[in-house]
Nucleic acid binder design. Structure first.
Lengths: 151, 151
DNA sequence: GGCGTTTGTTATCAATCATAACAAATATCT
DNA sequence: AGATATTTGTTATGATTGATAACAAACGCC
């Protein structure tokens, strides 16, 4: 005997047990947001991690690689290529850190400052879009508070 | 002249421009949750994606690979290795799909059912921990609603 | 019967993340 | 001061994840 014909409309899958999970929904939301971020920054060819590095250096010039990396939760080893990439593009500089010949002090170049201005403008629009989707700044803040409890 | 001594306590970095961003906080929270998930499932050697595949097959036996993959947002191409891995471990089976000799219908094996029972128990405890961190089921539901608006 | 589409698959490719090892420089301790 | 431990940047490497292109077999359509 074959399976009986149940419905003409395509039978839907049961997904509650999978989708009603915090981690799963977090992953989906994060992927979605990052894809939109990448689309918005396609012209600048800037990835999320790179943007955060530029902002952090701009707000904290002269800090060592390790300090910047640690705050972003990036391993020292993986941070090297990231910094090298931004340096090769002429956006940041590694300078000798005063008082520690091992360390590299990171600075934005003049080009980097100009570049970051453009990036910040795009990011502001992007964040405004996220806030609009969430339904207002209060909801955004509520989300950030909830996310913090998971870290 | 050298930089003046400002403070004995280590000077803190300015991070607002980076951390007050939805995408960034999403990424951090998702990474943190997945790391705890992986720790909880270390004994079962089960990754988040694998768990969701098992649950989805259990709740929708006989579905084609493409159907399961699409719901999880996994590309067909990348889903092959995932299915093969679970099949090699004896947890699921690829069976001939009735009426379509191209497609593979996916089923849990008896071992897969037993295995998923254990996994579900762990996941239930894990989700309870997430809810506790968030401050209750209402907050968890609020988070899920907010996350949905970002997809 | 011919033609476009779907399905599973392989092969790449890029990005992300983790670990181990290492040399140079620095800090610590006695 | 000298021995020892730690920090810093770096390279190398591996595992995981996600995306794209191409392909043969099977299917659906006309």
């Amino acid at each position: 005997m074959t399976a009986p014909l149940i419905s003409q409309t395509e039978p839907e899958l049961r997904t509650e047990a999978t989708t009603d999970i915090v981690g799963y929904r977090l992953r989906r939301a994060q992927l979605s947001v990052f894809q939109r971020f990448n689309a918005a920054f396609e012209m600048l060819n800037l990835r999320p991690a790179e943007y955060s590095v530029l902002v952090l250096i701009a707000d904290n010039p002269g800090r060592k690689q390790t300090e910047i990396a640690e705050i972003l939760g990036i391993k020292r080893a993986n941070f090297v290529a990231l910094v090298t990439g931004l340096e090769t593009r002429g956006l940041i500089e590694r300078q000798a850190a005063p008082g520690d010949r091992r360390a590299n002090a990171l600075y934005l170049t003049a080009d980097g400052v100009k570049f970051l201005d453009e990036a910040r403008a795009i990011q502001d629009r992007f964040e405004a879009d996220c806030i609009a989707r969430l339904g207002g700044v209060e909801r955004r803040d509520a989300l950030l508070r909830l996310l913090d409890t998971l870290c």
